[in-house]
Design a protein around this nucleic acid. Sequence first.
DNA 1: GTCTATAACCAGATAGAC
DNA 2: GTCTATCTGGTTATAGAC
Lengths: 193, 193
Amino acid sequence: MSHPTAPLDARHLRPAGRATRAAIEEAGRRLFGSHTYEEVSVRAIAAEAGVDPAMVIRHFGSKEALYLRSIDTSLGVGAVIDGPVETLGRRIIAYFLDQRDSPIGKRHAGLVQASYRQQVRAELNRHTRVRFVDAIAPRLAADDAELRVALMVAQLGGFLTMLFVQQDPLITDADPDQVIVLYGDSLQRLITG
Amino acid sequence: MSHPTAPLDARHLRPAGRATRAAIEEAGRRLFGSHTYEEVSVRAIAAEAGVDPAMVIRHFGSKEALYLRSIDTSLGVGAVIDGPVETLGRRIIAYFLDQRDSPIGKRHAGLVQASYRQQVRAELNRHTRVRFVDAIAPRLAADDAELRVALMVAQLGGFLTMLFVQQDPLITDADPDQVIVLYGDSLQRLITG
DNA sequence: GTCTATAACCAGATAGAC
DNA sequence: GTCTATCTGGTTATAGAC
């Protein structure tokens, strides 16, 4: 009989592990990319990847951990930030108003929904610091530049939540150009006096 | 023996129904008042009220419906809004910075967390209109007053989320007076040019 | 017929045995 | 690496008491 301890030949540990892990990560990226945190179940990810639900946990520890790996917290805003700071306000609002039918809205909604989780919060704070504060504050003259940028992120977040989550018709149905001017300039004044 | 059909005296239908219903609502108000939507379970509400979990659903239809009844969406901001519009920006920020150790933060966090639910969103939008737009816009000169107030609500919401949910140290550890001036004036400029 | 309560159902997340 | 069991949570079916 095959003794359990020592099969010398069964040394093909295989790409087995790697393949399923990759499949799970890929499935997570697809689902979390276009659906909200709560909308995506571990079972759904497993089904999409063609593996058992337990594998998801086994490989990533938790649904939250996989979520953190899968999501792009930047929402694609990098290029906008790299542009001139003097016009950042209007450009960033215009950018997001342009994403209304893209999956970015869903992604933001997912982040908001998941933000009560400690690790997600930590990642968002890290993101604020790296992508916004460190990228923008050095380009500003004010000595309270870091606080100004952090407050700008707060203000921007409020807009995104209103646009993508709360979807108040007062704003979603408003003239985009008017919103760009009003809110964009408000953002702008916060960072550049 | 006591026949089941006809006790003429047993006409004390009593506060029976009313009493449990009230107890459940009271328990919901207590728990939702200081905890997040997801943190509060139907079972916990039932235990607090001393009734069976099924009663919660039977009387209110769903956890979400009870939540909507229990929560005070105004976050106590009414008095601040009723003050002079010319200084609303700084006053409203000062008010919320002052609530850091009150349950209001938890309440806001709960609202954010629950805002992916359609009915909660609808209630929040209604609240925006009634408590903010209808209360403030008529006192402004601008012809785009309604949009300005709606955008101000978005901006305020971003601040509250940063303060109470995300709790970014860049903002929670900042000098409150500085925040009041920077963000308060930013809010102010949005509504009064 | 209305109020209550027990139990059960279903989905979700995760731990543990094989 | 796979499946089963467990735990929690929202909700429903259902049967009994008034």
